[in-house]
Every structure is written in C-alpha cells, then in structure tokens.
Amino acid sequence: MPLPEGLYGLMAEFESPTQLVRAAKAAHGAGYRRMDCYTPYPVEEAAEAIGFHRDEVSLVTLIGGLLGLAAMFGLEAWISVWAFPLNIAGRPYYSWPAFVVPAYEWTILWSGLSAAFGMLALCGLPKLYHPVFNAPNFRNGATTDKFFLCLESTDPKFEAGETRSFLEGQAPISVVEVEY
C-alpha cells in the first residue's frame, strides 16, 4: 500500500471549547463530514457537533462479560462434574452456589478487559505516528489548553483555499496545513 502523501487537512486552533463547538457545528452544517476535533479533555458537545453519537464500547463490554461468565461457569461445571469430580464434604458435584463467585469475577474481568482494549481498538490505537502531530502548534496545546478542529482533505467538500477561508471565518487563533 503506497503511503499517502500531500495534504492531510487544515487544522484550526481555538481558545475555548465553546468556540470549537460552534466552529464544528458550522463545519458540519456546511457539509463537511471527514473532520475531527482535538481537545485536552472530553467535550461531548464537540463530538455531537461533528455527528458522532453512539459508540460500540458498551456492546463490546457486554459481549465480553457474557463470554467471561459463560467461560468460567462452563469451566467450573466441566471440571467439577466431568473432569475432576471430587467429593468435598458431601456437596454435590454441580455446586452452583460456589460456582457463582469465580464466574462473577470472570464476568467482570472479561468485560473490563473488553471495555479497555475494545476502546483502544475502536479508537485505532496504538497509533504512535499520526499526521496531526505534524501540525507545529498541535503538541503545544492539544493536550494542555487548546482546542483544535481539523478538516480532512479526503472530504469531498474539501478544497484548500475555500476551506481555509471557511475556517478563518470561525475566529480561530490560527489555521495551519497538516501534511501526511
């Protein structure tokens, strides 16, 4: 696969989350779809503004949890009834009250791991190299106190000059080009 070259997008830097959200809404309203906001803390309004509503992390977690539950309960039942039946103080081989505890723990373990790693996977992380880091001002502020809106060049509506003037109309601190 050839490495993409050229312009990744245009990145506007904002001072406050309110400005960012407004700019993002404007961009969405203007028909831009391939874009992203970068903020130093979660700004849900910005996500909604760019049309991102639901995430699948809950679903992944639920599936992971159910798998963990089934795996451990199945394992316990298999071991205690079939593979290694031992008479312990006259209790039945299939001692479901006792099996509940490890099964419960594994439900949490699997769903927890699914929630964490599912989130990373859905985010496409790890991604140590990303074009946005090429923006000269990005790493100064994106994880501290600045708010960024990046309109990506793959968007059909993207046109370098027009998009730049659109972004500059949103009162950013700066608009910079981001290379791949």
Binding site: L3, P126, K127, L128, Y129, F133, N134, P136, F138, R139, N140
Partner: peptide
C-alpha cells in the same frame, strides 16, 4: 514540533502486539 515516532512505528506497534 517534529513527530516523535517514525511512520513505521504504527506498523511496528501493531506487529509487536500481535
């Protein structure tokens, strides 16, 4: 500011996870 990691690091990271 330059990138800290080279482009190849994405592939490398995934590979090493696998």
């Amino acid at each position: 500011m330059p990138q800290i990691f080279d482009r190849s690091s994405n592939a490398l990271a995934r590979m090493s996870l696998i």
